[in-house]
Amino acid sequence: TNAVASEEKPDYVLSYGPIMTLEQRERYQEDFCAEYDEYKDLHSRIATITHMFVQLGSKIKSLPPGTREYKIMEDQILEKYSKYRKKFPGYREEKKRCEYLHEKLSYIKQLIADYEVSQASS
C-alpha cells in the first residue's frame, strides 16, 4: 500500500510543503535557483531540436508522397535524427529530466507565490 501512495505523488510534493516562514521561503528559492540553470539549459536545447523537426515535419507534409522531393526530405529527416541521436545519446532521458524539473520548479514557484500572497494579505 505504501508503494501506491509514493507512486501517486512525485517526490517533490512530499518534500515541499506549504511555506510557513521567511527562512523556509529563502530555502525554497535557493533550491529553485540551484536547479533552474540546468533546467533552462536542457529546455533550450530540446526546444531547438523540437523546432527543427517541426519545420522538417511541416516541409515534408507539404510535399506529395512518392515524389523525389518527398524522398529527399525523408532522407534528410532520417539523417538529422541519427545525427542528433549521436550528438545527444541521452536525449530521451534529458527530455524526461527536463519535464520533471519543469514540474518540480513550477511546484516550488507556486508555493513561493502562495506564500507571498498570504504575506501580502495578512
Binding site: Y39, H43, T50, L56, G57, I60, P65, E74, L78, H102
Partner: peptide, 29 residues
C-alpha cells in the same frame, strides 16, 4: 519501413514543448 520510421521520428521529435518556466520574480543570488 522508411516512411514508417520517419513518421515515428516526427511523432517523437515534434511533441509540443511548453515555453520555459520563468525564474522566480525575486532574482536568484
Amino acid at each position: 519501413g522508411d516512411a514508417n520510421c520517419v513518421d515515428e521520428i516526427l511523432k517523437e521529435m515534434t511533441q509540443s514543448w511548453p515555453p520555459p518556466l520563468t525564474a522566480i520574480h525575486t532574482p536568484c543570488k
